[in-house]
Structures are given as structure tokens and as C-alpha cells.
Design a protein around this nucleic acid. Structure first.
Lengths: 201, 201, 201, 201
DNA sequence: AATGAATGAGTATTCATTCAT
DNA sequence: AATGAATGAATACTCATTCAT
């Protein structure tokens, strides 16, 4: 029995995906508010009617972009943590994971970090919870490292973890896949800097 | 020459300032695109007519907010650099200056970092130049420190400086003046971390 | 010829009826314009495709609701008129019939009286003719009563009949089957009032 | 001192009034839902921007139309009730007032009676209260007439008053100022019918 | 007989900007 | 220096209808 071949442009899933991808591209470039639904459907070669058949609102796109990214990221981070118990190795892994996300999911990260505020209370609850969980993992590594005597205990663990997160997250502002720096080099440099310090001797 | 006796609510400068301040507050909260001129003038207890008497466009507000901040910041940074020649001290100063900016100019920083993209080509040129100059100062400190043998030469200086900038800039996302952490504590912890490293021993 | 054995949810007639019933309910509540085809098919647990298989347009529903009601009503009215020749009894019968319609076909009446205007020229012609015939029957009773000397001849017969029609039709605005008043009581009171008058003595 | 002569099309009040009048005309013809804001501003020779400068929503127009009418009507009804204590005269006055309203405020009445449901909960509360007050006045006349022995006590006063209201209100469906029947004739015929009855002798 | 996807025109509303006063 | 009225284009979203399957 031959597979039925639809005459429609895409399957449902493909249409949704096309819209989400166009939206992500435009949200990254112009921001959520400055991106019109019209521009999204134009980019995806569809119509507004089609858009609202698949999504209940523009905000749903934002939620979907967050979802796409954060679940993947949470998984990566968790697998790092379960691969070793050494705080230094864990930190190295988290930094590498974060920089790789910037490399591979640049626009996701840009939208994730820059357009958070446009998720409504309801839409945001789940995303916020996951994001907090991710931040907590950085914090947990530092905290456990301090308890184990491997990380300096005289530094506030919250500040340390937020510093590392900022350093990594900010990379989406300047990282270019076409540039000379590989994600690995960046992650390594960051790891050395925060672990061993800049100073010689 | 006698001063002119104005019958108006405010002086020109005061009106401008009121509008810029309202705009900054709202841009921080809702973003540039999602903030209407109406909401700005409402907040400043004025009308749209008054707004367009003082500004040619909404974008001009954004430029003004950038200006207000970046000139002050450039001055601070320059004074840090001229106060010492020790790379460690310079880095400490830059970090402290950055965190203090987050503390004292929180909304400026938020707008500066989050709403850059809405400055048009023309409006942005000057701002961009100053921002680059500021980033170059971080880079310069690292570079000179490496040449002087005080900073590890095996790490890419660009990556180091961008890491420090990200770490500090990101603080506007989580720093709260009401919180337990003082700007000084944060700056000290950041400095120790990147200079001496997290690891014990 | 054997009956075709349908595999479908409903018979054609049942599906049509389900849609008409849902539409009537919603037209009564929200009016024709403010009721979307989507809300109708949702209420009937069907899809828009099914709707347009059975009806050519939303307007056709309105016509069908009118038809359902007016044919039944015309028959009732005609049977009243042929049951007696006494003008008083005829008037009593017409009023009772009208109030019973409000009792039993409340939503039909509501749609019939309130959403007439949305029937297009073509759709409306037939309905209009039947409605006029019904109004003419009220008028005819009054007119014949006047000729027979049983109804005051000093009153305009058009005004009398329209007054009675209005009094009865309006009842759909306030009549509640759950209330204390029975349709019979209402019809009786209306009949006495217009036939004998409110005044004592 | 010469009056200042504005170059604007209308004064504020006149613009508002022009919009309300256009809206009333169109609401009467097509109903609230089927009337677009565009069609209203076209009719008033203005733009949508101007409309939303003067009104917060389309619903506000509806509220305004109701207000315009019901306050006037309440005043008329109250002055009738205070002009005489005779129940027959009061009833005659109420009927005449109602029919005159249909004559002079035909479109107001049409909108008032036909488009009630589109007033939101908040917008409707005040209107509903006034409408109830008006209905209560009809009821009060009947009730007092019964207590005074001037109106038959065997008829439910609620039914009587609602019958009279329906009879009068319905007139907006058929009354035409160009027709042969004057408002006075209609009111007189209604009054005689419900007061003395249709029957001869 | 019914579905699900899509269309295109339309809806109410908002907005940056203009301008006569 | 500031106001109030107005514009016109844009915005998010809805809707009746179509059609391949």
C-alpha cells in the first residue's frame, strides 16, 4: 500500500515548524514586539489564517521557542552532571555545554535571554521553573565544590554561579560561528579563567 | 542680562529630563517597542504635543538614554585606568566600576544592553563607537597584563575580556539593591574569581 | 430497493438538525452576527467541513430556523380560525397560540423576531410572505369583528391588531417557563384586557 | 473680542455627536455586531484614529445611545406621573409617552430594544437599573389602580404592565412617521383598547 | 459524510507622528 | 512651551468559506 501523498504544502507538524523557525529568526533580529505576525507568515510563505489555525497567539510561538531550547539544554546539563562527580570537571562541562548552546542554538539563546519578558504569567510559569532549575545546577556545583573543599569557601556561591552564567550567556552577543574562535576554545578559556584565575604564578 | 521669567510648568531642560526618565523606566520594564509614546507622556504628566516639541522621534529618547549613561561610564573607566598601572588593580577597578553602574544606573544598563538594536544606523554610530571604546579598555588591560607577564598568555585576550564584560553586564538581570549583596561584595568576588580562580590550593 | 447502511455518526437529517439546534441556541443568546460558524459546529460536536457539506451558508441556518417555526405557527393559527366563527373566541385563540409559541418555541421566537434583518432579499421573500400572512390573520379577525358589530368600529383595526401582536411577541423577552405564570394565565389576562378592558365597572 | 474660529472640522462635542449619530443610524439598520467601526467613521467623514481618540471602544457608542435616550424618557415618564393621580390618566400618559418616543426617537428605541445584549456587564448595570425603573413605573400605575379599585383586581398586574409595554415597544417595528397614523391616534387607540376593551357593549 | 488545513478579506484597536492653535 | 484633535498605516486576531483527501 503506497503512502498517501498530501497535496498540501506541508504536514501539520512541518507547517508549525516552519512558522516557529521563521519566528525565531525574526525575533532574534528584531525582538518579539517589533516582529509582526504578518512578517512571520510572509517569511514562512503562509497566510495569517494558517498561522492562527496552528497557534492561538503570537505568544505561543515564543513559548514554543523556549520549549524547544530549554528541554534540550536541561538534558545536556543533566548528562554532564551525571558523568562525573568532580566539581572542576562538572564546571568545565557546564561551561562547555553553555557555549555549545550558543554555537548551535544561537537564535534560540538570543530569544531565550532577550525576550523572556513577553511571556505572560501563565505562559512563563513552566519556562521559569525550568530556567530556575538550570541556574540551580550551576549553583549546586559550586555549593558542593565548596563543601568538598575543592572550591574556595570565602566567595559567595550565588555570585560565583551567576557570574559564570552571565559570562557564558553573554557570548550570544558576540560569538560568531564564522569567527576564528571555536566553541571549545572559548569554553576552555572560560574554564581556566574561573577555575585557576587569570594571574600568573 | 535678566533671566527670562518662564510661565511654563518646567524649564525646557526639566521637561526633556522628565520625558527621558519616564521613558527609561518604561523601556526597562517593557522594552522599547512595547512602550508607546502615550505611556511615556502619561507617566511624565505631559501630552504628545509636548513630547514632539522636545524630541523628533521616540528613537531620540533611546539615544539620549544611551548618551546619559555611556559618557558617565567612559569617564569612570578612564579614571580607573589612570589611577594605577597594575593590571590586577586595573581589572579590579573595571569590574567594580561595572558593578557600580549596575547598582546606580540599573535601568540605564538594562536599556543600554537590551534595546541597542532599536537605534537606527545614524543614531547608533556614535553610541557604537563609545561602546567599542569601552570594550577596548577591558581588552587593553588584559593585553597589557599579558605583555607584562602578569596575566596568563595562553588564554585568548579577547575571550577573557568578553567573559569579564558578560559576567558584569549580566548582573543587571539579577542584581537587586534591596538584596543582601552589596555591589562591593559582588565586584570583589568577581575579581577574585577571574584573577585567582575558584579552585583551592 | 434496500436501504443504504450508513457508517456515519448520524443520518444526514440528524446532522442537519443538530446544527440547526445549536445555531438556534447560539443565535438566541448572541445574535446572528455575533455567532461564528465555528461556535456552532463546536456546540454540535462537528467540524466546519461537515457544516458546509450540509449548508451552503450561515444564512441558510437562519432560514431553516424561521421555516421550522413559521410553518408550525401558521398551521396552529389556521386551526384556531377554523374552529370557531366568534371574533372573541378567535382573538382568544390567536393570543393563546402566540403565547404558547413563546412558551414552547422560545428560542425560535427570539430568533424569528430579533434576527430577521439578516435574511437576505432572496432568503427573506418566502419568510416575509408567511409572516405577513400571519399578521393578516390577526388583522382579519379584528376587521371581521368590526363588520359584525362585535368589535368597536371607532378604533383603527391595523393599530389594534399590531398592538395585540406586539403584546404577545414581546413576551419572549420576559416569559420564563420556570416562573410562576403559566402560558394560559398570561393568554387569559391579555385576552380579558384587550377584549373587556382594564377598567372596572 | 471675536470668537476664535477653529480650523478643525468640528468641536469635540460635535465630533462625538457626529459619531454617535452615525452609529445610531447604522446600529438601527444593521445591528451592533454587523456594524463596523469603519462604516461608522466613513458615515461621519472621519477616520478610525479620530474615533478612538474620542471613544474607548465601539461599546461606548452603544452606552451613549442608551444614555441619550433613557434619561430623556425617564424624565418624560416621571412628569406624566406627577401631572395626575388618576390611574386611567396616568396609563394614557404612559402610553402616549411611549408612542411619542417611538415617533421621535425611532432609532434610539430600535437600538435600545434590539441591541441591549451587547452591553457588557459593567456598561449595562446603570442602563439596566434605569430600564427597570421605567418598567416599574408601568407596574406601579397598574398596582395602585388595583388598590384604588379602578383597575380589575382579577388580572395579574405584572402581566398587564408587561403587555402594555410590549404593545408600545413593538411599535418601533412598524411605525412610520410618513404613514397615515399619527402617534396620537395610535396612543389613543391603545389606551381605549386596554382600558375599555375591544368589545362593544 | 466528514475532516483538517488553508485562504483572504475583515475586525477592533493602537501607534508614531503632525499641526493649528 | 504645550495642547488637543486628527491622520493613516500597522497590529493582533477572527471569520465565512473552500477544497483535497
Amino acid at each position: 500500500m503506497p503512502e498517501s501523498h498530501s497535496k498540501r504544502k506541508y504536514s501539520t507538524a512541518a507547517t508549525r515548524q516552519a512558522l516557529v523557525t521563521s519566528a525565531r529568526k525574526l525575533f532574534e533580529r528584531n525582538g518579539f514586539s517589533a516582529t509582526s505576525v504578518q512578517s512571520i507568515v510572509d517569511d514562512a510563505n503562509l497566510t495569517k489564517g494558517a498561522f492562527y489555525y496552528h497557534f492561538v497567539s503570537k505568544e505561543e510561538l515564543l513559548r514554543e521557542i523556549h520549549d524547544e531550547f530549554i528541554d534540550h539544554q536541561l538534558t545536556s546539563v543533566q548528562s554532564v552532571l551525571s558523568s562525573t562527580e568532580d566539581p572542576g570537571e562538572q564546571l568545565r562541562g557546564l561551561i562547555r555545554t553553555a557555549i555549545e548552546a550558543v554555537e548551535q542554538y544561537r537564535s534560540h539563546v538570543a530569544v531565550f535571554l532577550g525576550e523572556r519578558r513577553f511571556l505572560s504569567e501563565e505562559g512563563f510559569a513552566e519556562v521559569k521553573e525550568k530556567r530556575d532549575r538550570m541556574e540551580d545546577m550551576f549553583y549546586g556545583v559550586v555549593r558542593r565544590g565548596q563543601r568538598a573543599g575543592r572550591i574556595r569557601a570565602d566567595l559567595n556561591p550565588r555570585v560565583l554561579s551567576l557570574g559564570v552564567i552571565g559570562m557564558c550567556g553573554w557570548a550570544y552577543q558576540w560569538y560568531s560561528p564564522q569567527g576564528k574562535l571555536s566553541a571549545e576554545e572559548i569554553a576552555d578559556a572560560f574554564t581556566v579563567m574561573v577555575w585557576e584565575g587569570m594571574a600568573t604564578g
